[in-house]
Amino acid sequence: MSLKVLFIGQYDVSLNISIAELELICGLSQKPDITIDVFAPFNTESLRLLNDSGVNTIPGKLPEGFDLQFIESIKTLQADHEYDIIHCYHSRILRHVIFAIKRTPVKLVTYLGAMSVHWHDPTAYFSFLNPRVDAVICNSRRVLTHFKKQFFGKSKTKAHLIYKGYSTAWFDDITAIDRESMNIPDKALMVTLAGTYSKVKGIEYFIKSQQYLPEDLSIYYVIMGHGTDSKTLKDLVLQMPFPDRIQLLGYREDAKRIVKASDIYAQTSLKEGFGRSLSEAVSMAKPVIITKTVGFSEVIETEVSGLIIPPKQPRAIAEAIVKLKNATFRQQMGLKAKTHFEQHFNSQNTIDKTYQLYQSLINE
């Protein structure tokens, strides 16, 4: 008997953001005993990928706030199709789905990519900590450990570690941006950091690390992502010894081209899950510097495939950058990280482990 699965997600965004989820859906659809429907807003690229894999797409709008009409639409879908599993990718949708499937036997699976759920937060019991949720896929061991601490007793078994798989081939055709267009000398060391600006990203510590760099080394920092061009960060840059060597770009559509042109990728977060930007950088064979509080540290063997440093330590960031000044050492480290990533964190592993999770839920 075919297993019927409904995915609910958001696929009208850039393919760069949604590709891992779409590859998972397409891969699962090739299993002989699974039929998949996807309810979501779509763009042309996501529709083409899904339809080419034979996935049935159901266009629909996702709720902004609490939306009774959306709940009714999920109720109707479940009544009409009698899905065995609903796989819900976004927390703001999750509470709606929980209401929609009350008193139905369907299994509910969701995804958690950050350490953002806490037992003392009442709203968590309308989403991830709700008894109606059957399985929560955590994208790193750090997130898994944190999430299990929010449960009591047998409920801890709801948490499952499945890394979000990537194919490094997705990044083969990306062309590096011309450094001259960014006013960065070819022989300079270019270090990039990408992420939406917030205190937890530790961007201030990254900027302050310039104070500890040797003056005779030409090192440029490129920081990009929503909010990274804020006045707060601009004022901080002006206090650094070489403010002209720190670029605050804000959001960039060509962020991957910039990473491809860089020599080193840094992520200096105070805490974080697996991190899409890190996965992309490693897929492009970039050596990475990360804090030990980042879930991606599970991928890196320090001094071999990357450098792991303590958080909130500008001097440690600078010292790690200087360690990577040798081009041959950088290239070797980047290639080792990419090879390890390909072997252990690829899309097929994610597809197979998600399939196994589905089977275990149905056989309970």
Rank of each mutant, 00 (worst) to 15 (best):
T354E: 01
R252P: 02
A318T: 12
F274E: 02
G165M: 13
G9S: 05
N51P: 09
R141G: 07
I174Y: 08
K61Y: 12
S2Y: 11
Y111M: 12
T196E: 04
F329Y: 15
I74S: 01
Q343K: 14
K231W: 06
K338S: 05
M333V: 15
A79N: 09
I177D: 01
Q348R: 12
A20T: 08
P59M: 14
F7S: 01
S262I: 07
A114E: 04
V282G: 04
M182N: 07
E21V: 10
Q78G: 05
E253T: 15
D52Y: 15
F128D: 00
L47W: 05
E215Q: 10
H96A: 05
P32A: 13
F345H: 09
S140W: 01
T350G: 14
G202F: 00
P310K: 11
R141I: 07
F151W: 06
S181D: 09
N349H: 14
L129Y: 03
D229V: 08
N183W: 09
K312T: 04
S347V: 14
V222N: 01
D80Y: 12
E72P: 05
A169T: 14
I34L: 11
E280C: 14
G9D: 00
T104A: 12
P214V: 14
K325E: 08
I184W: 01
Q211W: 06
T228M: 07
N139I: 13
L129K: 06
M1H: 12
F296P: 01
T44F: 12
H146L: 03
A124C: 09
A40Q: 02
D12K: 06
M224A: 05
R257I: 08
G27S: 07
P311D: 04
G225E: 00
Q239G: 11
S277Y: 06
A100S: 11
I219V: 10
I101E: 01
T228D: 00
H87D: 01
K323L: 11
D254K: 11
N349E: 10
L213Y: 02
F70P: 00
L270C: 07
K164A: 14
S198Y: 03
E298T: 12
I19K: 10
P311M: 07
Y166C: 11
I264E: 00
D80N: 12
I17F: 06
Q331F: 15
D235V: 13
G195K: 00
Y166A: 12
E272Q: 11
K187C: 09
E364D: 08
L307A: 04
L94K: 03
T354D: 01
L28N: 02
V282Y: 02
V143T: 05
F345W: 08
Q331S: 15
R132E: 03
L270F: 08
D352T: 15
S198F: 04
K292E: 10
K312S: 11
A124I: 05
K325V: 11
F66E: 07
I86L: 09
L249V: 09
S127H: 04
C26V: 06
A320I: 10
W119M: 10
T354S: 06
Q332W: 08
F206Q: 01
K325A: 12
F296Q: 03
K61G: 10
T123L: 14
K107E: 02
F329S: 15
